[in-house]
Simulated assay, not measured.
Amino acid sequence: MKIDLPNIQDQQRFIYEEATKEAIAQLKANLMAPEYPAQDLVDESLYSRAHLLRESEGWEAPAPEIVKAYFRHFQNYFSDYGTDAKLAVLLGITGGGNDRRIRAFKDGSKKTPYGIWRRFLVLTGRVPQEIIPVMGFMR
């Protein structure tokens, strides 16, 4: 009995293609996410909007008041992430004390890093997800 298997490169390409199809499906599903009222915990007009930009566009870390308002607003609607520890996990912050890091972002003792903030903005539909072009398959 002979079993013909694709070579490793063909297998890797298949996996890549399937993951891309899943990503496209998720992007389409994202367009159907429910809408929620705007946050009213802080007057955003008093703050710079640079926290909504990409790094290459002049991004600045959000003011702690913005962080606190956005996080609280999110947690009010998504009770599964109602604790700082659970919100931290959602944002990719792992390890002990992850809840302390969230609190530090909210009280301003630590600036919120770009990657964590950008993920939150994408999760809340405030900015589009960035799609990075593939320049070529390097083997």
Results as ranks from 00 to 15, higher is better:
Ile3Trp: 01
Asp4Ala: 12
Leu5Phe: 12
Leu5Gly: 07
Asn7Ile: 00
Asn7Met: 04
Ile8Asn: 12
Gln11Ser: 07
Gln11Pro: 02
Gln12Ile: 15
Tyr16Lys: 06
Glu17Ser: 09
Glu18Trp: 02
Glu18Lys: 07
Ala19Asp: 10
Thr20Val: 07
Glu22Cys: 00
Ala23Ser: 13
Ala23Gln: 10
Ile24Pro: 00
Ile24Ala: 07
Ile24Tyr: 10
Ala25Ser: 10
Gln26Glu: 10
Gln26Asp: 04
Leu27Ser: 08
Leu27Thr: 03
Leu27Met: 06
Leu27Cys: 01
Lys28Cys: 02
Leu31Lys: 14
Met32Pro: 00
Met32Ser: 07
Ala33Arg: 14
Pro34Gln: 02
Glu35Arg: 09
Ala38Gly: 00
Gln39His: 04
Leu41His: 06
Val42Arg: 01
Glu44Pro: 02
Glu44Cys: 03
Ser45Gln: 15
Leu46Tyr: 11
Tyr47Gly: 13
Ser48Val: 13
Ala50Glu: 12
His51Met: 14
His51Arg: 07
Leu53Trp: 12
Leu53Gln: 15
Arg54Gln: 15
Arg54Glu: 14
Ser56Arg: 15
Ser56Met: 05
Gly58Glu: 05
Trp59Met: 12
Trp59Glu: 11
Glu60Pro: 08
Glu60Gly: 12
Glu60Tyr: 07
Pro62His: 11
Pro62Phe: 13
Ala63Ser: 14
Ile66Met: 11
Val67Lys: 01
Tyr70Arg: 05
Tyr70Leu: 14
Phe71Pro: 02
Phe71Val: 01
Arg72Asp: 02
Arg72Tyr: 08
Phe74Lys: 00
Asn76Thr: 08
Tyr77Gly: 06
Ser79Pro: 10
Ser79Arg: 15
Tyr81Met: 05
Gly82Met: 10
Ala85Arg: 14
Ala85Leu: 08
Lys86Asp: 15
Lys86Gly: 15
Lys86Ile: 07
Leu87Ile: 01
Leu87Lys: 08
Leu87Asn: 02
Ala88Gly: 12
Val89Arg: 10
Leu90Ala: 12
Leu91Gly: 01
Leu91Ile: 06
Gly92Ala: 13
Gly92Ser: 08
Ile93Arg: 13
Thr94Gln: 14
Gly95Thr: 11
Gly95Ser: 06
Gly96Phe: 01
Asn98Met: 08
Asp99Cys: 13
Arg103Ser: 11
Arg103Cys: 08
Ala104Cys: 10
Phe105Lys: 00
Asp107Ser: 05
Ser109Thr: 15
Pro113Ile: 05
Pro113Ser: 06
Tyr114Leu: 08
Gly115Cys: 06
Gly115Met: 14
Ile116Pro: 01
Ile116Trp: 07
Val122Leu: 06
Arg126Trp: 02
Arg126Gly: 09
Val127His: 00
Val127Leu: 02
Pro128Ala: 14
Gln129Asp: 02
Ile132Met: 12
Ile132Val: 15
Ile132Thr: 15
Ile132His: 11
Met135Asn: 09
Phe137Leu: 14
Phe137Asp: 09
Met138His: 07
Arg139Pro: 02
